[in-house]
Structure formats: C-alpha cells, structure tokens
Design a protein around this nucleic acid. Sequence first.
DNA 1: CTGAAAGCGCTTACAG
DNA 2: CTGAAAGCGCTTACAG
Lengths: 344, 344
Amino acid sequence: MKKTSVTLKDIAQELNLSISTVSRALKGHYDISPKTKKLVTQKAKEMNYYPNLFAQGFRNHRSRTIGVVVPKISHYFTSTMLEGILGHAEKKGYKVIISESKNSHKTQIEMLHNMIQYNVDGVLLSLTKATEGVEDILKILERVPLVMFDKVSTKIPCTQIIVDDKKAAYHAVEHLINIGKKRIAIFKETEKLLTSERRFEGYLQALSDHNIPIDPKLVFSVEDLSLEKGRELANLALSLKERPDAIFAITDTCAIGAMQVLNKFRVAIPEEIAVVGFSNSFSSTIIQPKLTTINQPGNIIGKTAIKYLIKEIGIDRKEGLVVHKTIEIATDLIVRASTLKVSG
Amino acid sequence: MKKTSVTLKDIAQELNLSISTVSRALKGHYDISPKTKKLVTQKAKEMNYYPNLFAQGFRNHRSRTIGVVVPKISHYFTSTMLEGILGHAEKKGYKVIISESKNSHKTQIEMLHNMIQYNVDGVLLSLTKATEGVEDILKILERVPLVMFDKVSTKIPCTQIIVDDKKAAYHAVEHLINIGKKRIAIFKETEKLLTSERRFEGYLQALSDHNIPIDPKLVFSVEDLSLEKGRELANLALSLKERPDAIFAITDTCAIGAMQVLNKFRVAIPEEIAVVGFSNSFSSTIIQPKLTTINQPGNIIGKTAIKYLIKEIGIDRKEGLVVHKTIEIATDLIVRASTLKVSG
DNA sequence: CTGAAAGCGCTTACAG
DNA sequence: CTGAAAGCGCTTACAG
C-alpha cells in the first residue's frame, strides 16, 4: 500500500514556483496574482492534492479536532446528542473524537487528559453520575476550552447546555393535575444528580402553584434508577395505605418498569394511576398503554453545545472575553394513552 | 488560556542533555545508560511532560487514529458495536474518529475521503443501504487499510466481520419448527441488503432440512423495513386464505410492528401465530408478550473488527502479506414468551 | 553511551 | 507579486 501523497513541494516543482507561493495561492492570499492563483488551484486539483492536515495542525497549533466525553454512547438519548454534534462538526470542518467514561470518575478524567494530549481544540463533556469532586475538571478547564452538556455541574464555571428540566417536569406534573389527579408520586434519584433534582423542583413547584399539599410519602428516591428500580418503587407505591393516583417517573425506563407492575396487578392506567415518563424513548411507544413522556431534542442539545464550543475556540486567546452561559433547551410534552383525560 | 506545554527541548535544557538523548531515553532505547534513563524519566514526570502526539504523528507518518464510518450512530446495535471499538482502541492507544453516512452513498464516500485526509491509520466501515457500486470504495482501499463490519459487501476484497446471519436465521426458524409450527412466514427486505438475503437463506435451509415445503406466499419482501412496514405486512399475512402460524421477522422493530397488529386483532401469540425477531433490542422485552429474538453481540463485533484492522495497520508496508478473512460472529437465540411451546 | 543535523509538510514574517 | 528561510516538536541514521 503506497501512500505517497502529493505535497505543496510537488506542485511547486511542476509549476516552477516556490512552495510559499503555492501555499499562499491555495489559501487565496491577497498578495498573489489572480493568474497564479488560477494556475495553482487548477494544478492542485489536477494532481489530486490534499493538504496534510497533520502538518497544518502541527504548524498552526490547532487540530480542528474536538473531543467528546460521554458516560455511555449506547444510551439512545446520548447517541442523538452525538448526532447533533457530528452533524455540525462536519459542516464546520471539525473532526470528532469520542470517548466513553463508563461509570467511572477515574476513566472520565483519564479520557479528558487523553483529549488534551491528542491536541484537541476543545472538549465537550457530559458528566458521569460518579463524578466526585470537580478539582480535576477545573484543572482541565485551564488547559482547553470546555463546554458541558446534558449532565453538568454548577460547580464548574463554563458554558453549559441543558434541558430545561425544571420547566419540563413542571409541565408534566401540571398536565397530571389538569386531568384531575391529586396524589401525584414522583420516582426520582437520590440527590447526587443535578438533572434529577431540577426535575424534582419542577414537581414541587407545580404542586404548590396548584395548591396541592406535598406528601413526603409520595416522593420516592433511589440510586441508579432502572427498569428494575421502577418496578420496586411501583410495588412500594401500591402498598401505601393511600395510593397515588399518578406517577411522574423521571426516566422512561423507570416509568415502564412501574407500568409493568401496574399492568401485572391490573391497576388501570390512567384511570386508577396515570404515568408520565421522561425522554421519549422508542420503548415508550411500545409499552401498553403508550406512555406520555417528555421529548428532549438531543440533536439540538448536541448542536448547541458544539456551536458554543467552536465560538469559544475562536476567542480563547484573548483571555477574559469568554463569557459563560447556561443555555436551557426547551422540551415538549407528548401526551399519550397513559394520561388520557379521565372523563367524569 | 495559556497552553505552553513542556517539550523535549525543555527537559534537555534542564538536564544539560541533547534533545536526541532525551527522546531516546524516554522511549527506553537500548543505547542509553540506565542512569540517564532514570534521570530523564524522572525529570519528565516532574515537569509534567506529555509528548506532542501531533509532532510524533507528523514525523512518523502515523496518527494512531482510526476512522469509523457507520450509517447511523443512534441505532442501538450500532452504538454497541461502537462501544466494542472504543474499548479496544483505548486499550491499544488509538483514538477514534466517528462519522455518520446517514443514508447517503455520497456522504459515505465523502466521509471516507475525509478520513484519509485526516491521516487515519485505518478505517472501519459499515455500509449504508444506499451503497451504489463499489468502485469508489475500492479506490479508498488502495490508500488505507480498511476492515468492514456488520453491513458489508462481498464485492470488496477486505477483511469483514459479520454476524453469522444464515446460521442465526436457521436456528430461529428451526426453533419455530420445534414448537410445532409449519407455516412459517418471513418478513424481509428486498434483495439489496446482504444481511437480509443471508437470513433468508437460513430460513430456506431450515425449512428444507425439515422437509417443509416453501410457500412463496409466506415470503414477504419490502424495502426499508420498519415498525410501520411490520404492521402492513402483518395485515397482509392475516388476510391470507391460509394464515401463517408463525412469523420470522428479520428485525425486532418489524416484529414488534407485526405483534401490535396481532394484538389488535386478538390473534393469540404464540398459540395462533408465534413471532421471532432479530437483534434483542430493549423494546423486545417491553412488548407483550416478550419477543423471542436473536442476540447479536455488538461489542464483540466491534472489538473483532478493530483488532483485525490494527493487525493490518501493522503489516501494511510489506505489501502482499495482508490476508483477507471473513469472520462470522456467533449469535444466540433468546427464547421468550412469543414462541413458548404450545402444549398439545 | 551521547550529540549534531536533517527532515516530516506546512505557514508566515521578512526581504526584495 | 514572489521567494528564501525559520520553525512547529519530534525521530533517527550517522558520526564519534
């Protein structure tokens, strides 16, 4: 496999020009005469010249590469965010290196260090649940432009793109109230996870805005929410003396687990207990009845994140000019059979 | 943001050594005295030195980067293959650039060209459905080591990692026969897609091995199999004078669409019609009854693909030594309620 | 065992 | 409008 690629030098020789001139002509430098420019660009095309991005990057101290670190690539929502990132990266001529941090804080930090070593121009980060302390990340922030998305931390001063979790949850719970529900349970994570807490805030707010007292018995917190955990919590909820008449689960998966239990015990959904999930997964349309849920536009989140990152990369030299924003991306509630209005 | 990183030169100055010596010491070159080695490695650590991979790559004509082109990253199966790729890449010190070809042949070729321009050491490719002609890809094959996985083409002479589709389908259909089914329909794609054709072969083989005549009316072919198409085909199947007593759908999604129709018309699954899918998606455990399906180890496929690619990268200089293999990864049948043995 | 030097392909001040 | 030269950070034959 020969890979002798055409270089500036080759073009220069063919044309009896200097390498400098060829280089400049190809970049459309204003100093070069139109004739030469035309000559060079034609020859370059003819010889099938492609710039050695490696050499360019080496020379310019920029790689046109962006590093992305996410907890797990095979979560559907994550992969839609990645699609948003890839799409925009391509348009802007950036390549994207992707790493998984799994559920390890250590791996996460390692990956970030790798990214720096790979000379990425900037990093896009979505935190693992297991993130412990942020000092490591603060250090990284000093070395490379960084934008966080989806799973973020308020302790890290950087631009962050998130779903408007509080508002989304508020709408979900308000919807339950509107269909006549009064004892609305929430299935959420224990404190660690910001996303979960913000959804909880939305829940509390909606109840209080509608003068519904908060019953602590209806707040179910657990670590590592999953299908299985959804089932367990549903069992707990059913065993309450005063059962809830609705469940707001902060993930679809957990909502589906809960529904399986309700179905098993022939608890009518939504008549006896309505259910709302979060994230509009494919499965939410498969479960019976179909699950009302909140659609998070992964694509837009990813795209917004990389947009801001590229902007920061552009201005990172002039220290001080970088303004950190928190952008909240709007979601929408998709109403399906699991919360159909109960007539009467 | 200052990014003045430590270079070999800095270490050399500190230690009053030449750059050459420092470079060699760090690589453990046998020529360097143990004392110097120790001195240098310590100093490097102390100064927090990280090699500039860019400069190394530029110098060595290798980037330790692998390019991956897949049709769509947000397909669950695809993302598990990517996980396999990423995991092994990390272990071997390779970074991974990922691109989506969407459903466009043109984009696919563009992405491959990009990869070459990015100086990747090798490329991992899974074809889009829309692949038209392979000349473009053959040309790329001349320029960079390439291994294909999952969606492949026999017309391209390179190492290919695929699921043993024929055998998998054979087992699925044989399982249906074993539970007493005789009129087994297949829901498949039209010819274009190799995967689909190989599953069809397995279907035919299983029937003929068990002396069950093939009824062309039971072979349903359609383009772009989807949930919706699964529903349509199920409707067609139900309208047959002689209904099938089982359906082998070559994707889970399509199987689930079919089941929705069966459920709607209160056709008992599996008693009246049993259903088998393909790929063990999360949804296959959500649909009622749970779907029997074939588990494809995406992780292993990805890992195997990158393993072979790295091997090829190692030997690509000595032309002619590269042997192209087709590796078939074994699958397993996961039996669930949709094909439970019908007693009597 | 160590060092000086060339070169990977490109860009860009400097000079003319 | 064009060219010669330096340099990005590293590796590696060549010399001693």
